[in-house]
Design a protein around this nucleic acid. Structure first.
Lengths: 364, 364
DNA sequence: TTTAGCACTCAATGATCGGCAGTGCTAATT
DNA sequence: AATTAGCACTGCCGATCATTGAGTGCTAAA
């Protein structure tokens, strides 16, 4: 059971690749007969069987039971993803759909991510996962105050994450517009650009002093600012196309689906996972490689979305280990880049996959 | 097979009620033996059997097969909900949790509804449904313009539905703050309060003229306004606690769950359903009473949320026909009222259920 | 090194068969 | 007239068992 994939004979690579791809497509264990028919080697089933047996010894394949064909083990998928997989070329149509996500320049992240959820799930036919990670050091960059009624006004905040939040502020007395303008000015002067820890008591008192008799405004406003920042801060996890999970026989077990869906509620593990991931490439976590318990029988493919060097989110796909890796990885990568804004133009390399399928090079 | 529920003997009502409640709790067909043990009538199984047979003839019960107990038919549930059910009294704890949804005066509808989704699903242990209906005649009540960079500014719009939307506007040239102030003024003067159909070409041209050399600003803005309004307009359908569906054996069929979840994508039927519903009470749609195909084996309990006489949303629960109606209805109603703002204080009557379970009155 | 041949294994399928929970009917009881 | 005891009947459920067939591992021959 040596797992040294480098020692793999070209022929074995070919066979492994064929098995993984056949299994990905059909979901049925792959037998020697099938391979002789669909692989253009002039080999008999017996030979294939020997090779398959060897691949099993090396840990790349397993047998569900003695008299069935082979299916890839996690190590098998891993080796496939790292070394065998041919990169899927997105069609023109797919490419344009993906870039369409950001087309009309809506810079609001939430909206973009929401569309991304839907699109990626449709294109891959798996359940999509979209994450907005927790963030620290968020500030309100700019304040606007909009009067509504004499004692209600709207506090509009543009945060450092480029999103706009607004809060209704109710106060116990009437406030005139002049006061509100003064308030707006004060907020932009004293509070804008400060992180919560920088908004200190002296600062608040200074504000109150400045506002004079309207100092009662300050308290609800500071509260709203905290709320806004912590809302932003919380992180978010959203799924799309959940019903697609149920298309795959590996999710026949109700419990598993239930647990997976339950992630929506306790999202912390997931957020940690994302924030500890490799920021530069598509991450592929196969089965138990995954740190989150409930996904031990699933594969998670995701990539963080970077903007100006900061992680503003992550998009990905969750599905059975038997997943169309090639297509999924290509799709996730393209979309992540499209969201990041193709401005930089530097093409990020795909995990370890070779670009053109010519993977059966002579080995050692 | 006369379905005339009024003709029901008090004893039969009692038996029907017991069967429905037992079945709701256990999910197993209810037999005569169980009833003699748990119902404090001094009756033998044989007598009960006769009565059950009669109830079946009237269409309130069915038998899954000859040698099983009875389960309620849709008509049975209906009669139960209309005439037999005792209203569930929320505990103090439940009540306070429900009212907590709106407690810190966050008037932003989206946020409230999102919390509602979660809460109602937790309290009832069914999947919750939250709807923001399509709306017509939406206007932007107030505009604010916030400069970001020389050629990007933020257009903040307060709509007639009390939500705040903002769009980044990119323009091909630099705009100074004075122009933006002028723009803001113009928007509030000419566009605020107008529905899309009232924003006519002459009006737009007037705006352009007023802005003079910055007329190029007008087009992207008008586009953003349309977008904002139509986003608001679209309606939204959200589920919460989807995994709870899988707890109930009636959703053992994968296809059914899949279709149900698929509703998230094509939400139109659902939105129609809500907008055609009774606005003043909790709607209970049992199985095929439901117009939407995929819910033919499910029950939908929902109530619209009114504010100032306008329907701003709907909340509800979806689950198997075998549902704890009493509790669900009470929860949905309480929450809908809590969201609407308990201000009015007029208690809306529950469908047709009598308030105190004394339903076994003498009949004709 | 490859391959043909063959015995072997085990999941899946389908038929058979009591057990059992609950019914409907009839006749006896109140 | 209403209720009940008795009893035969029905049909689901689970267990058992035989059959089938795809796929394997091994051995010996090419």
């Amino acid at each position: 059971m040596k797992d040294n994939g480098e020692k793999l004979t070209p022929r074995r690579r070919l066979i492994l690749k064929a098995i993984v791809e056949a299994y990905i497509e059909s979901g049925e264990p792959v037998g020697s007969k099938f391979l002789t028919q669909n692989l253009e080697l002039g080999l008999s089933p017996a030979t294939i069987r020997n090779e398959m047996s060897a691949l099993e010894d090396m840990g790349f394949l397993t047998q569900p039971h003695t008299s069935a064909g082979r299916i890839p083990s996690e190590a098998g998928y891993r080796f496939y993803v790292n070394s065998l997989m041919r990169r899927y070329d997105l069609t023109q149509k797919e490419r344009s759909e993906l870039s369409g996500v950001t087309e009309n320049k809506i810079a609001e992240l939430d909206k973009v991510l929401e569309r991304a959820t839907k699109l990626i799930s449709e294109l891959t036919n798996y359940t999509s996962v979209v994450v907005k990670p927790r963030q620290t050091g968020i500030t309100v960059r700019h304040f606007k105050v909009v009067p509504l009624t004499p004692n209600i006004f709207l506090l509009v905040m543009l945060t450092s994450t480029e999103t706009v939040k607004s809060k209704h502020i109710h106060v116990g007395f009437d406030v005139d517009n002049a006061t509100l303008e003064k308030l707006e000015l004060a907020l932009n002067l004293h509070i804008a650009g400060k992180t919560p820890s920088e908004i200190t008591l002296p600062l608040i008192m200074e504000m109150e002093q400045y506002l004079g008799e309207s100092e009662a405004l300050v308290n609800p406003i500071i509260k709203s600012i905290y709320e806004t920042i912590s809302e932003q801060d919380t992180g978010e996890l959203r799924f799309g196309g959940v019903n697609r999970l149920l298309e795959y026989p590996e999710y026949g077990d109700r419990e598993q689906v239930k647990d997976l869906l339950g992630m929506l509620d306790n999202k912390d593990d997931f957020l940690d996972l994302i924030s500890n991931s490799d920021k530069d490439r598509v991450n592929v976590l196969i089965g138990s490689e995954n740190a989150v318990d409930v996904t031990h029988n699933s594969t998670l493919v995701f990539k963080t979305v970077q903007k100006d060097g900061k992680t503003i989110g992550a998009i990905g796909v969750i599905g059975p280990c038997r997943m169309d890796y090639s297509r999924v990885i290509a799709t996730v990568e393209e979309l992540a880049q499209s969201i990041a804004g193709a401005a930089g133009g530097t093409s990020v390399p795909l995990t370890n996959a070779l670009p053109d399928g010519r993977n059966e090079e002579k080995d050692n």
